[in-house]
Amino acid sequence: MAAVKITEKARAVRLLVLDVDGVLTDGRLYFSEDGQELKTFDTQDGHGIKMLQQAGVACAIITGRNTQLVARRAANLGIKHLLQGREDKGIALKALSQELHIPLDEIAYVGDDWPDLPAIRMAGLGVAVANAHRELRRHADLVTTARGGRGAVREVCDLILEAQGLYEQALAPYLE
């Protein structure tokens, strides 16, 4: 899709919705000997999410799994809208859109695999991470250059901030 069209779509975004495994993480699951699940999150992705929220763009998570680990990460990032155990991401996205009174065309959704397809196709800006399954890359408006769990979310956050003319404002405190 043309860069101008992507910028127009990003300019309209009021809500960024993220999958977890393969988007906020690299998609690998780690289990300790005692069965404890471990995940790694990219700190730059987290900072991008915080900056986006400070600029007035809400963030949410929709994930098929249900873990305290994700709830803790969402709380650390100030993400108030967390939908866990939701296999049908399209239905979950519609419900979130209605609950928050944000039209689908003002929502960006980032995913990596088939369960994310309905949400990517209905969101105003559908994004696939670089290492997403080829079907997601084919249906997405945008494919990131960074991989899931390795800066893809930060890339999307920066894009939205730039499109909305808020990037320099977000950066300014770090240059003083």
Rank of each mutant, 00 (worst) to 15 (best):
Gly56Met: 10
Leu52Thr: 10
Gln164Arg: 15
Gly48His: 12
Leu69Trp: 00
Val23Arg: 02
Asn131Met: 01
Ile160Tyr: 06
Gly165Pro: 05
Asp19Pro: 12
Arg147Cys: 12
Arg86Phe: 07
Leu171Ile: 10
Glu99Lys: 12
Leu142Arg: 12
Ala55Ile: 04
Val13His: 00
Gly126Ala: 08
Lys50His: 08
Glu33Lys: 03
Asp141Leu: 11
Pro115Ser: 05
Ala95Gly: 03
Ala108Met: 08
Ala163Cys: 12
Ala2Asp: 15
Thr145Leu: 14
Met1Lys: 07
Val129Gly: 05
Ala55Arg: 00
Arg14Ser: 15
Asn76Cys: 11
Pro173Trp: 10
Val17Ser: 12
Val110Glu: 10
Ile62Gln: 04
Pro118Asp: 07
Asp34Cys: 01
Cys59Pro: 06
Thr145Asn: 14
Trp114Pro: 05
Asp88Asn: 15
Tyr167Cys: 10
Leu69Asp: 09
Ala172Asn: 05
Arg11Tyr: 11
Arg72His: 12
Leu77Trp: 08
Asp116Gln: 02
Arg137Gln: 15
Val13Ile: 15
His101Gln: 13
Tyr109Ile: 13
Met51His: 02
Cys59Gly: 07
Leu29Gly: 06
Ala172Glu: 13
Val23Gln: 02
Pro173Ser: 04
Asp112Gly: 08
Arg86Ile: 08
Gln98Asp: 15
Leu15Asp: 15
Lys5Phe: 11
Tyr30Gly: 01
Gly56Thr: 08
Cys59Ala: 14
Leu29Val: 15
Cys59Leu: 03
Ala3Glu: 15
Lys50Met: 14
Ala3Arg: 11
Leu38Val: 12
Gln53Ala: 12
His139Cys: 04
Gly22Ala: 04
Val57Ser: 02
Asn66His: 11
Leu38Gly: 03
Glu106Met: 07
Ile61Thr: 08
Asp42His: 13
Pro118Tyr: 03
Asp19Ala: 07
Pro115Asp: 01
Ser32Ala: 11
Asp42Arg: 00
Leu159Asp: 10
Ala172Cys: 04
Ser97Pro: 05
Leu93Met: 06
Ala2Tyr: 04
Asn66Ile: 03
Pro173Tyr: 09
Leu175Gly: 13
Gln169Gly: 12
